[in-house]
Nucleic acid binder design. Structure first.
Lengths: 242, 242
DNA sequence: CGAATGTTTGACTGGAGTCAATGAGGGTGG
DNA sequence: CCACCCTCATTGACTCCAGTCAAACATTCG
């Protein structure tokens, strides 16, 4: 039933670093199973530890952090190939929660095996650091967006980044993507109010730069959007996948 | 001249994970020297790779990211024990720049040795991932601050976090800390304008919660500040040091 | 003493937030 | 089959937090 790592369709995408078959076999050994959860299911909880680590095989979700007053910051949207639970795995505590936005298929790894997994091949430890560094890198960008970009710039930035991430893993369809998130989610990711987010999107729509309806976003002019978002259309950097 | 790792004064602080003497010896082997730079010196550059990695032995600095329009987001302030250049070390490119705010003493490591260093002891790879996860965790908090907290909340949060970080490495003096940064730096870290930052600080001063003059910040009421900043006064999590 | 750098204030503006109401589907149960 | 409800998107009116502009201070330094 479960997908064999060696036949994993994700692994073949350009986005992911290639590894040799013995390395893939090691990962297969580390993988304890597969899990499917419905949209809306919480996967990991801020402040808690987790006995399991996951790689998203299919579907989308979001990471977020709650403030004591109830406000929510969406840390990032997560896509196939993203690794979940690394913080719990190495520091013993998650800094954010993760929840499924669509139905989600996850490869499940046992946290207790993490150490033996690294010992068996030191390169795995390097890859873990690499994964964490990728996240850190991304979050630096996100922080810059929320701190310095205006609403239009932020929205353009976010959609361009998401489009490129999806493109690199073969999830685009021409210039459009399936985007199952609510405007509220995007607003919470960019530190904007829902109303202002909606009006800003309306502005981009009226300029024919963007389309958003029925869970699909169309980037009619990627280059122009990137320009507005003060960013580029460079391919995302290669990253490891577990 | 250079400090021996086994006699490193930082290593002894509560903040840092303990390691056995053979592990320390390994790090000593990895260390190629020490470097002292003046205030204002750039250490690492956004978008570039770096042949060297550093651990701050003494002094303070800041990480920042520039936007194409010249705006600056300060990603974080860096303190003794912080490891610089990890992104370049594992992904081959820095996502931000780092520069010295005070005169800085740095332990220098050779990037080319990183891999042999990890191979020699897989635990080092784990620690690298741990370090990266610590940063990622912090940046999630920072993102939440910039995205969700108001100006007063953000400033209170930042100063409390900084105070606690310094306290854990023995850099506080009662309720005050040496804080060599400009208000502009804090403003850029929190996504606020200089003027508004200044006025908000003035507000906290007038409430006797804060003092800031001559490069020293006094947190007259840590608990109350933490409350305002929607945070706690918990000790920072233990972290590895290289 | 002038030039630089950083802090502090005041006056004004504006981007984004808040409040509130209306639409537009999608379920579902009577 | 449709009224009712729930969720999410959309719009308008109004407010306010934070940004911008500008000028005055305070220190340091050559």
């Amino acid at each position: 039933m479960a997908t064999k790592c060696e036949h994993c369709p994700l692994r073949r995408k350009d986005l992911f670093a290639k590894m040799n078959s013995s390395q893939v076999a090691e990962i297969q050994r580390f993988k304890v199973g597969e899990m499917v959860v419905d949209a809306g299911t919480p996967i990991l909880l801020q402040g808690s530890n987790s006995p399991q680590l996951y790689t998203i095989l299919h579907g989308m979700g979001l990471r977020y952090r709650l403030l004591s007053n109830g406000q929510r910051q969406v840390i990032s949207f997560v896509f196939p190939g993203d690794f979940l639970g690394l913080q719990a795995g190495v520091m013993g505590e998650m800094g954010h929660s993760v929840e499924a936005t669509t139905k989600l298929t996850l490869c499940v790894f046992d946290r207790n095996e993490l150490w033996s997994f690294i010992k068996a091949d030191p390169e795995r430890g390097f890859e873990l650091a690499w994964l964490a560094a990728i996240e850190e890198h991304f979050m630096g960008e996100a922080l810059t967006t929320v701190g310095q970009r205006t609403a239009v710039q932020a929205i353009a930035w976010a959609l361009v980044r998401i489009y490129l991430r999806m493109q690199a893993s073969g999830l685009t369809n021409g210039n459009s993507i399936k985007f199952p998130f609510r405007q509220q989610d995007l607003a919470d990711a960019l530190g904007l109010s829902l109303v202002h987010t909606n009006k800003t999107i309306a502005g981009l729509k009226s300029k024919q730069l963007l389309g958003w309806a029925d869970g699909e976003v169309h980037l009619h002019n990627l280059k122009k959007l990137a320009e507005i978002g003060l960013t580029t259309v460079d391919l995302p950097k290669e990253r490891p996948i577990l």
